[in-house]
Design a protein around this nucleic acid. Structure first.
Length: 480
RNA sequence: GCGCCUCUAGCUCAAUGGCAGAGCAACGGACUCUUAAUCCGCAGGUUCUGGGUUCGAAUCCCAGGGGGCGCACCA
């Protein structure tokens, strides 16, 4: 970052406003794959991209031209190429457009035999070591444009991210879901338990929150008669940054009328397995050196069973608070006085069990106490019909049968407000309009949220969220 | 927010108390089929910043800054 750009070379700064390409490098590779060694195709193409390598050899030169689809070799020679002397003095990183016949060299390398060429952009700064690239994480994340050229693997991740999201859209649309957009600016921060970012609207003179979840608006749309809706969008949570957390991240949320959380399980496992097959070529993927089998159906097991098996003793929500708290303390969990059995059970699960799960598991049936938007379990007291999907020790999805009873929703919100007053800065606020919406009638509805960034991490074998977010949140650069 | 680690040429890295170096990039040159081309030459530094210990500090100590990892919070 302290490096300074080279002085402009005037003749190279005078670059054209457009350049007509006839093909990209991937299509050329595809079209001329049967061209034998030392053959000329007789077909001229015009390509553009960056010069990533340049090998001069007296009166001839070889360059690697890279574009967004791949790369192809340029072959230049003093008798065929215009301004040959200038061509061989090009700096690595220069964008050029090149026109010439498609051919192969004596060694069989597919090449464009450059006749005419033009500089499209000058690279005044270099892209690092041509073998090692740039590995400094600070540079890679702050200057992603450098990373993407210096480290081709970084580029692949973002291509796959794009494929995952685009295929997710297509898959859901094929199921009859409609993509919608709901507000990012909320006057009540709801739909999840998290601290929000605050901002201010000048004309209305009110504080607004950047949304922590689209949930409550999406369910309003179901009330409005859109029976299958989804949104893929950014949410914002004012929390710490870590290898698995970025303050803004992308969520898929979907809602399906007349469905419950069992339907959401089926949808989730089928969607994720489908995406894995698309991106990884198999439902059995490799993550951080270990295999993960995403083939449906995934194991379905209750939180109580998981924790009981892990701790090798019965752990039930129906136990006395003292009894549960003792188990928590045995596992070095500090129990806060405001916690009920539900919160204690959740803490025990999260601290002792969650990180030990590798292959995908639907962790079913959460305590009502920690699930203010989920519908009461149809058979189990103080439980809700909710599940999280855990893969590789991490939460991948969260879903439930939605709470449809406005009076009960009001009680849940009131409890949240009390929690907030007791100092819980992640508790939800009262959302009167949402209750009013429920009063107009929300049918049985299944809801699902999937963290896209974490899904992309899983399917691209990345351990850090910064590898799948093009421009992760960073402390502002200091003057250096 | 707390703990541990780290910062040396544009990039990737050496030098562990004794003359700050290499490869790549850049720059100059040779070379008509290369594949990280090769070869010759040249240049490149506030060793993150500030203070301290020492005859002598990239190296040891203190403080600050950037980054990484772990914990906490969370998805």
């Amino acid at each position: 970052m302290s490096d300074s750009p080279k002085d402009d070379q005037n003749e190279l700064s005078n670059v054209p406003y457009s350049f007509a390409v006839t093909s990209d490098t991937a299509h050329i590779r595809q079209s001329f794959s049967d061209l034998g060694q030392g053959e000329s195709s007789g077909i001229t193409h015009s390509v553009a991209g960056r010069i990533m390598l340049l090998r001069t050899q007296g009166k001839i030169a070889f360059a690697e031209l890279r574009d967004s689809s791949g790369h192809v070799q340029l072959f230049a020679s003093s008798d065929a190429t215009e301004d040959f002397e200038k061509f061989i003095s090009l700096s690595l990183g220069t964008w050029i457009g090149a026109i010439g016949e498609v051919m192969t060299t004596r060694r069989g390398e597919l090449s464009i035999k450059v006749v005419k060429w033009v500089v499209l952009a000058n690279a005044q700064r270099g892209f690092g070591d041509k073998w090692h690239g740039v590995t400094d994480p600070d540079t890679r994340y702050r200057q992603r444009y450098v990373d993407l050229w210096a480290n081709p693997d970084a580029r692949t991740v973002f291509v796959q991210r794009s494929k995952i999201i685009s295929e997710m859209r297509r898959y859901l649309e094929d199921m009859g879901f409609m993509e919608v957009e709901t507000p990012l600016l909320h006057s009540v921060a709801g739909g999840a338990l998290a601290r929000p970012f605050t901002t201010h609207h000048n004309a209305l003179d009110i504080d607004l929150y950047l949304r922590i979840a689209p949930e409550l608006y999406l369910k309003r749309l179901v009330v409005g008669g859109f029976e299958r809706v989804f949104e893929i969008g950014r949410v914002f949570r004012n929390e710490g940054i870590s290898p698995r957390h970025n303050p803004e991240f992308t969520m898929l949320e979907l809602y399906q009328a007349y469905a419950d959380y069992s339907d959401m399980m089926e949808l989730t496992e089928n969607l994720v397995a489908h995406l894995a097959e698309l991106v990884c070529g198999s439902k059995i993927i490799s993550y951080q050196g270990k295999p993960i089998d995403l083939t449906p159906p995934w194991r379905r097991v209750t939180m109580e069973e998981l924790v009981s098996a892990r701790l090798d003793k019965q752990v039930r929500l129906s136990m006395d608070l003292d009894e549960l708290s003792a188990i928590a303390r045995e596992n070095e969990i500090a129990v806060a006085p405001s916690w009920g059995q539900g919160k204690v059970l959740l803490e025990i699960y999260e601290k002792t069990t969650e990180h030990t799960i590798w292959d995908p598991v639907f962790v079913c049936d959460y305590p009502l106490e920690v699930s203010p938007l989920s519908r009461d379990h149809r058979y189990k007291a103080d439980m809700v019909e909710r599940f999280e999907v855990i893969v590789a020790g991490r939460e991948l999805a969260n879903a439930f049968s939605e709470l449809v009873d406005p009076a009960e929703q009001r009680r849940r919100f009131l409890h949240q407000v009390a929690q907030a007053q007791a100092g819980d800065d992640e508790a939800m606020g009262m959302d009167e309009d949402y209750i009013r919406a429920l009063e107009y009638g929300l049918p049985a509805t299944g809801g699902l949220g999937i963290g896209i960034d974490r899904l992309v991490m899983l399917l691209t074998d990345q351990s850090q969220i910064r590898e799948v977010v093009a421009f992760p949140t960073m402390r502002p650069e200091q003057d250096r």
